[in-house]
Write a protein that binds this DNA or RNA. Structure first.
Lengths: 189, 189
DNA sequence: AGAAAAATAAACCGATCGGTTTCCCGGTCG
DNA sequence: CGACCGGGAAACCGATCGGTTTATTTTTCT
């Protein structure tokens, strides 16, 4: 029993940053982050250049969990249509949790406004990857216009998670028929 | 020519608040708002109880312009389908402007996170009104499930403006076919 | 045990936050 | 003229911001 019974300061900081910025916004203070992580500011600034970099790194680290949670396994036997629907089933599932606040990557970009901010860049990349997944599946599924379908699905993804995040809609019975309609129209059976 | 050659301090404050919070976020300082409005903090705090109330009031005031810009005239001769499409044409138009940053009401709610914040409540109401418009038109247009269609359209509205606002998509050729697909499926010709 | 390295807590920095108060100037009255 | 008064400029308040530094403790290594 030698391997990592406890998380490293770095991991704890990334975790705290991800959790607290998601709940309270990027305006959360460094002091609060360090306190939550049980790490001194001094150590934090040896591990990260700045708050901006910590924020960007925490989004980066969460990216793998993001895709792991949403995307289906790379080679499961299911059809492109089923694989796409799987993503939205996961969104609806997450939206049920009371602490759900929408897609963190969208929220960070909206809060920061500055597209050149390191964290905004990470967020932009992660969202680009999701769109790329949709496009690949759309192509594989024989969509009439894979690029269009991918953009439509990304739009629905962001719209759904945003509206659920602000409590404007609980998504029940909304996502599945909407996505199905788009898939049908695109010719993805 | 006696009526309002210049805006009142109150109007200037509301305008400055709307402009600056839209560009820089709700974290913008009171000092900057007052400076931009050409009003002293002293006067500002005589006109508004707090920053929160100023923010809420500025959103409230912008609400009429919001609906005036997006919604068609109440009694133009067009069909429900055309009236719904009109809204999204306006969104696509606005998204072309370089300073466009997505729907301000959605942004405010995401930034504040607190749903009980006065400004969040105003935002929630305004968005509810838009959904109500969609629902009314959906009913009038004979949609098979007006409530579902209204939620779908709201979802597309928020998704589209959010993604355009963060520079993830320029919406060109995206909204019209998407909305048309939803309208078709709902049976709104 | 004792030197060396690392990590902590906390003081500190200048700047800014939302909000209050003081001061002072320019009008408008009697 | 002189008393008044609204409002602007700016000082001021305690709190917090991101970030640095000091001093002390804890850990590690020999």
């Amino acid at each position: 029993m030698s391997t990592e019974v406890k998380a490293s300061p770095r991991e704890r900081l990334l975790e705290a940053a991800a959790t607290l910025t998601y709940r309270d916004g990027v305006g959360i203070g460094i002091e609060a982050l360090c306190k939550a992580a049980g790490v001194s500011k001094r150590s934090m600034y040896q591990l990260f250049e700045s708050k901006d970099e910590l924020l960007a790194a925490s989004l980066e680290e969460r990216a793998s969990a993001f895709v792991a949670t949403l995307l289906p396994a790379a080679d499961d036997g299911r059809s492109p249509r089923e694989r796409i629907l799987h993503v939205f089933e996961q969104v609806e599932l997450q939206a049920g949790a009371p602490e759900f606040r929408g897609c963190r990557y969208l929220a960070v970009q909206i809060e920061l406004k500055d597209q050149s901010h390191p964290a905004s860049r990470v967020a932009h990349r992660v969202k680009g990857n999701l769109t790329a997944f949709f496009r690949a599946e759309a192509e594989h599924g024989g969509a009439s216009d894979p690029e269009l379908l991918a953009r439509q699905l990304s739009l629905v993804f962001d719209g759904a998670s945003a509206r659920a995040g602000i409590g404007a809609d609980n998504l029940t019975g909304l996502i599945a028929p909407t996505v199905a309609t788009l898939l049908d129209t695109a010719g993805v059976r």
